[in-house]
């Protein structure tokens, strides 16, 4: 009996911890590990990477990204075809229900075209992600190597 009540308490604690952990998510999507490389050149595009975690029970989609760091911000994917790698814009980035999608070098990325200032190591860049269901989610992107 004592053991059962212990389990109940532990489960309750777990649930609370899980809910507490998502306190940073105003909406159904948590964004973590957002980073971008320092820009080699101001007149070349930059790329931002991050992990999108969907806490909801339905698939969500990243539709667009806004920010004053670049004149144009696109969603891109690098894909392999015939041994060659190439990046192209994608219309959206799906995030599965209760799952995550990773944006990382050599794959999906947020493409920052026409930088308005240099991406310098140590700086933070503010972006706003627009999701189909979760709506707007602000993100601070860390510039690092």
């Amino acid at each position: 009996m004592k053991q059962v009540s212990m389990v109940v308490v532990m489960l309750a604690a777990l649930v609370l911890a899980a809910c507490g952990g998502s306190s940073g998510t105003t909406n159904g999507v948590t964004v973590s590990e957002a980073w971008a490389r320092p820009s080699p050149m101001m007149d070349r595009a930059g790329a931002a990477y991050m992990v999108l975690q969907n806490n909801g029970a339905a698939e969500d989609k990243l539709l667009s990204v806004e920010g004053d760091i670049a004149q144009t911000i696109e969603l891109h994917e690098t894909k392999e075809s015939g041994g060659m790698l190439a990046m192209s814009p994608v219309p959206n980035i799906p995030v599965p229900a209760r799952g995550k999608t990773e944006l990382k070098p050599g794959g999906l990325h947020v493409m920052l075209i026409g930088l308005t200032r240099e991406l310098k190591a140590g700086d933070k860049v503010q972006l706003t992600l627009n999701f189909e269901k979760a709506g707007k989610v602000p993100v601070a992107v860390e510039v690092r190597e």
Binding site: T72, E74, M84, L85, A86, S88, P89, I113
Partner: peptide, 18 residues
């Protein structure tokens, strides 16, 4: 191997390459 790809990006064409 490499080839030019018109992708419709605001950054202009992209190069596919090994």
């Amino acid at each position: 191997k490499y080839e030019k790809k018109e992708t419709g990006s605001a950054d202009g064409y992209s190069m596919a390459h090994t």
